[in-house]
């Protein structure tokens, strides 16, 4: 190892600094090259995309015509309703399962584990078909409590409509995935937080809802947002159990007019619109639960979303 020649020369440099002009920072050449290269790649891709679309036989008039077709809009509405309901039921059930998974009762923990094992371990498409065909094995569903006047039942075919089958399939499946996401959020909160709350005299429920969950949400929201978008797209599977959501509606139309690709483009555009809107919503929810935490890292990863709020709430 040779000795560094600059060591010990600092005082000399300091003495001559008086004469030096103020230095300004200039963008490095490597950065400029990278910027130009990036722009070239984007331009090339844009040309490629335009040529692909222009040379295809896509009939844009048909796409325009069906974009706001009442049946398509009804399909969009059904897709959104199904997604929102499935996620709402899934979150609630998922929270209960997550709490059961973290509880001290062996019975509760086992039931929760079994649930997640079962619903995550089988394809959602299979689950949907099972719910849809439930009447084959359970012809009637009802409640009867011996010794009371409660005795009610109905035909499964009447109760389990395509919509109910779709909702059951999606919600129960989401609950299994969300329960793991929620559990991960809960265990990500430092134990000192619940200890501090316990020392103040808060009870288990207060500790959970005032202290642990609000912090767990920070870890829960990004993967749950992912799950929401996955759920929205998974609703398209429901078309095979004859529920006319967005894809089912589009299929219904192109099976008659044979404008297959055009209607699939229409459906794709609507799926993109919905996922974009959900992502924007997620940004605001994330910002809410980011209260008190330095948002710099999170905000940067959201990229374009930070346009909505260039001002950060916490600067530390």
């Amino acid at each position: 190892m040779t000795s560094d020649p600059t060591i010990g020369e600092a005082p000399v440099q300091q003495a001559s600094r008086v004469d030096e002009p103020t230095l300004t920072v200039r963008r490095s050449r490597a950065k400029t090259v990278r910027l130009v290269l990036g722009l070239v790649i984007i331009a090339l891709l844009a040309v490629l995309a335009v040529r692909l679309v222009m040379n295809s036989k896509l009939n844009f008039a048909v796409i325009r015509q069906y974009m706001f077709n009442p049946s398509i809009l009804a399909g969009v509405r059904r897709t959104i309703v199904l997604t929102v309901l499935a996620m709402a039921i899934g979150s609630l059930l998922g929270l209960l399962i997550a709490l059961a998974r973290t509880s001290s009762s062996v019975a509760l923990r086992s039931v929760a584990f079994f649930y997640a094992w079962m619903f995550r371990g089988t394809p959602v498409l299979v689950q949907l078909i099972i719910w849809f065909n439930l009447a084959l094995v359970i012809p009637r569903i009802g409640i009867s409590i011996p010794g009371t006047s409660i005795d009610w039942s109905a035909s499964t075919n009447v109760l389990i409509t395509p919509f109910v089958a779709a909702l059951l399939g999606l919600a129960l499946n989401e609950a299994a995935y969300l329960s793991e996401i929620i559990r991960a959020g809960i265990i990500s909160v430092d134990r000192g937080q619940s200890e501090a709350a316990a020392a103040l005299g808060l009870r288990t429920r207060g500790i959970m809802y005032r202290v642990v969950m609000p912090q767990a949400m920070r870890a829960i929201i990004p993967p749950a947002g992912n799950e929401l978008i996955t759920c929205l797209k998974t609703t398209s599977l429901v078309s095979i159990i004859s529920y006319s959501e967005l894809l089912g509606t589009a299929q219904g139309i192109y099976s008659v007019n044979y404008d297959t690709l055009e209607l699939l483009v229409v459906a794709s555009i609507w799926y993109l619109v919905c996922t974009t809107l959900f992502s924007i919503g997620q940004y605001f929810v994330e910002r809410h639960f980011g209260r008190g935490f330095a948002l710099d890292r999170g905000a940067r990863s959201v990229g374009i979303m930070s346009l909505f709020n260039p001002r950060r709430r916490v600067t530390s």
């Binding site: 430092d190 000192g192 501090a196 020392a199 103040l200 005299g201 639960f289 008190g292």
Partner: peptide, 17 residues
Amino acid sequence: RSNIGMVFQRFNLFPHM
């Protein structure tokens, strides 16, 4: 516990408040 105050080494303030 509510009648006994406790102060922790790592403060354990609630960061979201």
